[in-house]
């Protein structure tokens, strides 16, 4: 059974049609890499999955739940789909540990102590054991993004959505975030990743989607299509990112 299923899904911002009748079905355990030119609708597609954008046509099912099912269903979907943003979006008034512990406390209902023990374990996992007491402003971009990944994982999601997680980072900091993502993929986490890191796509991607004008133009195995793009515009696009 498919885990995330776009059924003729459309999304418009006013007159601007951003997703056009998208059909896409992904299984558990897949690592879907989304690429495409700026403005082609990658972020929007991702954000429809956890309801940060409201779809305007068709349907979108996440683990058996429709994103159109109302507020409560949406909260359930969001607990199953963790999201990592390009700009990290850590809560600035909270320490790294508090950032990670917030979801378990306020969403899963854990006590402060339980939540913080779990949060510390997640910080260990992303290589930030000794940074729990630091505020976001005291961390580097790469560290902030790893905290953000830990924060998303803390709610125990079944799928992780990444929207250009390394785009705001200096080149030398990208790898520390990519390593955490590689690790997650190897542990079998289902992932949908918008990224321009083609090495990552080749290494752990199970599927590569090239988007163009709100449509899926190419959907294939990353290792084959990255080296021999089936579409001239994709070829052109790849020549610019690499």
């Amino acid at each position: 059974m498919s885990f995330i299923e776009f059924k003729n899904t459309s999304k418009a911002f006013g007159p601007l049609q951003v997703l056009k009748d998208v059909d896409l079905s992904t299984e558990k355990g897949e690592v879907v890499v989304l690429i495409g030119p700026s403005g082609s609708g990658k972020s929007t597609l991702l954000r429809c999955i956890n309801g940060l954008e409201t779809i305007t046509g068709g349907d979108l099912i996440v683990d058996g739940l429709s994103v159109t099912g109302g507020k409560k269903v949406l909260c359930e979907i969001r607990q199953e789909a963790g999201m990592v943003f390009q700009q990290f979006n850590l809560f600035p008034q909270m320490t790294a540990l508090q950032n990670v512990a917030l979801g378990p406390r306020k969403v899963r209902g854990l006590s402060k102590d339980e939540a913080e023990i779990q949060a510390q374990a997640l910080l260990d996992k992303v290589g930030l054991s000794d940074k729990g007491g630091h505020y976001p402003a005291e961390l580097s971009g790469g560290q902030q993004q790893r905290v953000a990944i830990a924060r998303a994982l803390a709610v125990k999601p079944k799928v992780m959505l990444f929207d250009e997680p390394t785009s705001a980072l200096d080149p030398e900091l990208k790898h520390e975030v990519l390593n955490v993502m590689l690790q997650l993929a190897k542990e079998g986490m289902t992932m949908v990743v918008v990224t321009h890191e083609m090495a990552f796509a080749k290494q752990v991607g199970t599927r590569l989607i090239f988007m163009e004008h709100g449509k899926i133009a190419v959907d294939d195995d990353p290792r084959t299509v990255i080296d021999t793009p089936p579409n001239p515009r994709m070829k052109d696009f790849l020549s610019h990112v690499e």
Partner: peptide, 11 residues
């Protein structure tokens, strides 16, 4: 972005 981050963890 902070509101979105909060919503995204299911709050």
């Amino acid at each position: 972005g902070l509101t979105e981050a909060g919503l995204a963890i299911g709050m």
